[in-house]
Design a protein around this nucleic acid. Sequence first.
DNA 1: TCGATTTTGTGAACGCCTTCACCAGCTCGT
DNA 2: ACGAGCTGGTGAAGGCGTTCACAAAATCGA
Lengths: 233, 233
Amino acid sequence: MTLLPRSPRLTGASTTDRGLPNATVARLPLYLRALTQLRATGSATCSSDQLAEATGVSSANVRKDLSHLGSHGTRGVGYDVAHLQAEIAQAIGQTQEWNVVLVGAGHLGKALAAYPGFASRGSRIVAVVDADPKRLGEQVVDGLVIESADDLDEIVRDRAVSIAILATPTHAAQDVADRLVAAGVTSILNFAPVALRVPDGVDVRQVDVAAELQILAYHEQRKSSPREEAVSG
Amino acid sequence: MTLLPRSPRLTGASTTDRGLPNATVARLPLYLRALTQLRATGSATCSSDQLAEATGVSSANVRKDLSHLGSHGTRGVGYDVAHLQAEIAQAIGQTQEWNVVLVGAGHLGKALAAYPGFASRGSRIVAVVDADPKRLGEQVVDGLVIESADDLDEIVRDRAVSIAILATPTHAAQDVADRLVAAGVTSILNFAPVALRVPDGVDVRQVDVAAELQILAYHEQRKSSPREEAVSG
DNA sequence: TCGATTTTGTGAACGCCTTCACCAGCTCGT
DNA sequence: ACGAGCTGGTGAAGGCGTTCACAAAATCGA
Ligand SMILES: NC(=O)c1ccc[n+]([C@@H]2O[C@H](COP(=O)([O-])OP(=O)(O)OC[C@H]3O[C@@H](n4cnc5c(N)ncnc54)[C@H](O)[C@@H]3O)[C@@H](O)[C@H]2O)c1
Ligand SMILES: NC(=O)c1ccc[n+]([C@@H]2O[C@H](COP(=O)([O-])OP(=O)(O)OC[C@H]3O[C@@H](n4cnc5c(N)ncnc54)[C@H](O)[C@@H]3O)[C@@H](O)[C@H]2O)c1
């Protein structure tokens, strides 16, 4: 499989085969977001410093990232906001909309289905499926009604879905992933805290909220005990 | 500030000052999860290969990570599951429970409040606050009632909160972060798609779900066009 | 026209992290 | 008691990614 390194996690393989460096790809959405905001404020151009400010990335890093797309800035001036926005959009495939199927309409799934932030950033949830027969037909949001998990195959095929969001309970996640892959899905955003096994060519990105808190907790612990040296005996 | 590199994002500073390498810290929660499962199955010991299998990390990487905690394995046998679990728990501060305040009880906030995965992994949401006066007093889950955002100061102080989950609309995020920091919070898990500005010593981890999908979309695009070489002219 | 100023693009250096390769130490069968 | 077979620990090497530093290029005012 091709578990994309969302953290310093797994698969060192960067700079995938003639493509952009992975680290750069992960930041392009941030630049795009910043550019959209800048454009709304009426700015025609922006400097790497401004982008750095808006994204939290260092300005040197911004320039390096953008240079991978080709040289689109003007020395002494900066980048043309609209042009750069279009450039990045094309690079990360935001010129088309990506159809997404959401599996699992529980607490988290319903929140995700209601999230307008996907549509404004290139993804569209075209189906919500759940295994619970009692929930079939329930409307989760305008235009989206819960469908049967048995119809996954058909949904994926007929609606040109290539990306899935997995929000089922942990114990069902691997089975759902297998079925998604069988149906033709080649990218999965997984919220269930398990390492999915998927074949080569299928990308998985993992969001583990509890783990994020644990990482913060580690640093909190270190803040509390500034000097551990004289401990124990 | 100290934006922790959740991705290859920001601040190269790894191996923080005598501590564990950042990349290792990010994986310890995975090992802990795997060990808990292994223990439930009755396994007394496990090999680095088993942990690799369960977490998706390479076995060499597992051994390197665990070696940073000291040598706790036995050659020819593996690691003692219970012992290693305790060891990791101590390393990442899971011997105590961390009190967390959740800010913003909207779609996402309610899902997070209902999530049992925090409690089982060392964090406890001790308060849910929202700015909407109409929602005050509403019970989001057993034992948690929505409180006023005006009481943040008091809540953070009285309940020994050091970690916050930020789930407000984007436009309110920076203001909320400022108030959290002023109240004494030193770690923030931010779901709003903005780069927060916080002072030094405050850690921020960012979860940007839409960006995750955009990253997947980038790779999808590349899958569709295997050879871009003969394009355009 | 020229010089001061701004800001990009980029080679080089540096550091972190992963992987490799292999030795050391443990168990178990004989 | 010993050799075969596992399995962890760990130095070395290599790969990515970030930061540094500066030349190149554009604008602007005088
Ligand atoms: N709730 C959160 O805030 C949160 C946070 C982080 C991670 N997660 C993870 O996200 C996942 C979902 O969490 P949740 O709180 O929404 O759980 P939930 O129990 O509220 O919802 C799960 C939904 O999945 C459906 N489901 C079960 N098996 C299915 C199958 N085989 N196919 C399709 N649908 C199926 C159930 O009917 C249910 O509606 C879990 O793995 C959880 O660990 C949740
Ligand atoms: N819904 C999702 O699945 C999802 C996914 C990814 C990211 N996000 C992000 O998470 C955040 C919350 O999303 P949501 O869908 O829950 O939004 P929402 O509008 O449903 O909920 C936001 C809540 O925050 C409260 N709020 C507003 N200002 C506040 C303040 N100053 N202090 C305290 N509370 C305040 C509101 O009253 C509301 O209850 C947003 O930034 C969104 O971009 C949401």
